[in-house]
């Protein structure tokens, strides 16, 4: 089976930042959350997928096609939702839609009107007068009205209130009832991912730290707390992102690969979250231990 999105050994060099041979694969039918600190390379990666900037090396296949050679063909089938507004502010929803729809062969006007109603978007309102949530929903309505099979979203939930975020997640859920679709989205709000993502990919400093099913991450990793006395060098190597204070330490631990079984009784094990995994695996400083 061909993947809906395949990024292979892609590099991009800037003066002060580089994306180092990254690999990401997403199968159709699933949602992948793409997370990492600011400046880690999330937007650069998304721009490369959308062919808005040129890669130095590597390959990006979408629906099995090279995204540069088949740009138009590929983009017809992608819905792109961007954090910043990429529409003409002075136009109304109606006018903007009339411009955009000409780019898509598969445009479905009835479907667009259905989503306008569903998302409560006022068709005659100027885009500059829309709230942030409405702009995001307008982008989404456009994406859905040309039957996009792959939704690529760059921080769609940032700056949105919890209600609108829940609305977006619910919309994504109904999209995912169709097993031929896939969603790739970057975000800072990891709690959104816990609700919907099938896969989590963490990027830091231009490198992919991990890219795995969310459930197995949450099962394998845990937060561990204990006395600093047990922190021998060999124990340190099986802990990730050790944080200590006067009265003890805290770290991320992989139950599957770690070797702390003998110390189980003197340690506290707690369930972890995607946010913890992000924070501990991308921690800066001398305690930084990568397990990958």
């Amino acid at each position: 089976m061909t993947s809906i999105l395949e990024i292979k050994d892609v590099s991009k060099q800037y003066n002060d930042f580089s994306l180092k041979k990254i690999n990401i694969t997403l199968e159709k039918g699933y949602v992948m959350g793409f997370i990492g600190p600011n400046g880690a390379g999330k937007s650069t990666t998304i721009k490369l997928i959308m062919n808005l900037i040129k890669k130095d090396s590597g390959k990006i296949n979408i629906f099995g096609f090279d995204n540069e050679k088949n740009e138009i063909k590929v983009k017809e089938r992608i819905g792109f939702v961007y954090d910043e507004n990429n529409f003409y502010e002075e136009l109304t929803i109606q006018e903007m839609k009339n411009i955009v729809k000409r780019f898509y062969k598969q445009w479905n006007e009835d479907l667009f009107l259905f989503y306008l109603k569903e998302f409560s978007l006022p068709i005659n309102k100027q885009i500059k007068d829309l709230s942030k949530g409405m702009k995001m929903k307008f982008s989404l309505a456009i994406a859905l009205s040309h039957h996009a099979e792959l939704l690529i979203m760059d921080e769609p939930t940032s700056g949105l209130d919890p209600l609108v975020r829940k609305e977006l997640i619910d919309i994504l859920r109904s999209i995912m009832e169709d097993e031929n679709k896939a969603v790739f989205f970057s975000t800072h709000i990891t709690s959104d991912l816990e609700k919907i993502a099938d896969y989590i990919t963490i990027i830091d400093n231009g490198e992919i730290i991990l890219s795995r099913p969310k459930d197995s991450l949450l099962e394998e990793y845990c937060i561990i707390k204990g006395s600093k006395d047990i922190l021998t060098p060999s124990i340190r190597t099986s802990l990730i992102g050790i944080e200590d204070n006067k009265y003890g330490f805290k770290a991320l631990y992989n139950k599957k690969t770690g070797n702390l079984k003998s110390l189980v009784n003197s340690l506290i094990f707690e369930k972890t979250t995607i946010e913890d995994i992000l924070l501990f695996t991308t921690k800066r400083g001398e305690n930084y231990v990568s397990s990958y």
């Binding site: 699933y30 949602v31 859920r173 995912m176 009832e177 169709d178 099938d198 099913p213 459930d215």
Partner: peptide
């Protein structure tokens, strides 16, 4: 219920219901 419908209703990811 289908895997995808159950995931939607329970508000969990598809991969979880599939498993």
């Amino acid at each position: 219920p289908s895997i995808r419908n159950l995931a939607k209703e329970l508000e969990i990811s598809v991969i979880t219901t599939k498993r």
